[in-house]
Design a protein around this nucleic acid. Structure first.
Length: 414
RNA sequence: GGAGAGAUGGCCGAGAGGCUGAAGGCGCUCCCCUGCUAAGGGAGUAUGGGGUUUAUAGCUCCAUCGAGGGUUCGAAUCCCUCUCUCUCCGCCA
């Protein structure tokens, strides 16, 4: 959520910045509602003030044994107009809140212009795509022998966009998770957490998946109305929801392995083959909660931590900065790490590292207490995949494939 | 699944329609005293929002005692719904 004060005081500037995302802010409506809110809130609070002081007077008169009936008669009108005023104010607040929750974050100035991924800008490359002197296979073909990767079984059990892994493939998959967790906890100073894989709607509101992107989520059809998590970002970041962290708890750095569940609504026909786009996949997620002044550096560092995994696995990748149109709703600035996939002959996203600044923190009231002022301040949140495990698996078996068509399942140093 | 008990500030814990944003204690901060330490004395110590202000400070108002409704001139306190926690029984990994 954007700072309501910023919206009040610099509405046109905000509108101009949001326009970079191709988002059209309804300045007129917002201005009108805001003016109404202000007038109504002042009026309501005046009425509340009057009610409070009169009620107090009644209490004091009663305590002295005086006749309170005349005082009671005076306030009969008050209740009605106060109630009406409060109801109207509540409606206005709800309306304004709905608009505010639907506004995307303001982009960092460094984010390049552009409508879609074609305008993303490459920042760096690491490693060289391998040369093969035989015909390259993709991971689906490489995983077919011994039913290592069995998409048919999964579609029988559940449906499309699921997989069954067997034997060495399942082990390699598990080993990758372990490897990533170990690197981030041992070398990068993250604390491992284990969290629920289902969350309530407040949590999704906090990180920004709700209210706008409900169709991307799996909702559990039960009395609780829980959702399956689309990323560990949701439960982990929400650890700080409605909290005021002490100065020594900041920066908070968490690494968390979870399955992720995405409906992939709207991506029909996209990446239908293989592991690239599944309804269920494993991810090791990095989350940091830091002081405002530290978030830019922390974002760079976190991205580096994700890159370390690719480098240790010796997988060629490139780093891009997402353009305005491709940057996610809650993010001010996002780096994508794209790994080379020989099966596709191109770089594909394997990690997305974003700085949300105070956007999520404001939604979820995640704060820390600054000892210099003694006052709570909003945290800045940063997260990124470190890495998407399924896609890492794809990258390994494709980049390290052998001439005889076998994946390198025996050579991984797990 | 059945039966009970509970939810109050950083923590413990009073409060049972009015003078309670909330006693008391602990903790924490600052000051005083004591040559260190221990002990003692004093003051302060929730969060969010509005108005005023160029903005801060300040001043002032409003809201918040698990959440949401209701009763009342007035609700932490009474009523309803929900959530969560704990205890016992059953079941289960």
């Amino acid at each position: 959520m954007l700072d309501p004060k910023l919206i009040r005081n610099e509405l046109d500037a905000v509108a101009k910045k949001l326009a970079r995302r191709n988002f059209q802010l309804d300045v007129e409506t917002l201005e009108k509602l805001e003016n109404q809110r202000k007038a109504l809130q002042v009026k309501t609070q005046e009425l509340q003030n009057e009610r409070n002081s009169r009620s107090k007077a009644i209490g004091q008169a009663k305590a002295k044994g005086e006749d309170i009936q005349p005082l009671l008669d005076e306030v009969t009108q008050l209740g009605e107009s106060l109630k009406q005023s409060e109801t109207e104010l509540n409606q206005l607040h709800t309306e304004l809140e709905a608009i505010l929750l639907g506004l995307p974050n303001i982009l960092d100035d460094e984010v390049p212009d552009g409508l879609d991924e074609d305008s993303n800008v490459e920042i760096s490359r690491w490693g060289e795509p391998p040369e093969f002197d035989f015909e390259v296979k993709d991971h689906v073909d490489l995983g077919a022998p011994n039913d290592w990767l069995d998409f048919e079984a999964a579609s029988k059990i559940t449906g499309s966009r699921f997989v069954v892994m067997r034997d060495a493939m399942a082990k390699l998959h598990r080993a990758l998770i372990q490897f990533m967790l170990d690197v981030h906890t041992n070398e990068h100073g993250y604390t491992e957490v284990y969290v629920p894989f289902m969350v309530n709607s407040d949590s999704l509101l906090g990180t920004g998946q709700l209210p706008k992107f409900e169709e991307d989520l799996f909702k559990i059809d039960s009395e609780h109305g829980y959702y399956l998590i689309p990323t560990a970002e949701v439960p982990v970041t929400n650890l700080a929801r409605n909290e005021i962290l002490s100065a020594k708890q900041v920066p908070a750095k968490f690494v968390c392995h979870t399955p992720c569940f995405r409906s992939e609504a709207g991506s029909y026909g996209k990446d239908t083959r293989g592991l690239i786009r599944q309804h269920q996949f494993e991810k090791v997620e990095l989350v940091q909660m830091v002081r405002a002044e530290d978030s830019a550096d922390a974002h760079e560092a976190l991205t580096q931590h994700a890159e370390t995994i690719l480098q240790k696995l010796e997988l060629p990748y490139r780093k891009v900065i997402l353009c305005a149109g491709d940057t996610g709703f809650s993010s001010t600035k996002t780096y994508d790490l794209e790994v080379w996939l020989p099966g596709q002959g191109k770089y594909r996203e394997i990690s997305s590292c974003s700085n949300f600044q105070d956007f999520q923190a404001r939604r979820m009231k995640a704060r820390w207490r600054n000892p210099d002022t003694g006052k709570p301040e909003l945290l800045h949140t940063i997260n990124g995949s470190g890495l998407a495990v399924g896609r890492t698996l794809v990258a390994i078996i494709e980049n390290y494939q052998q001439a005889d068509g076998s994946p390198p399942l025996c050579s991984f140093p797990a």
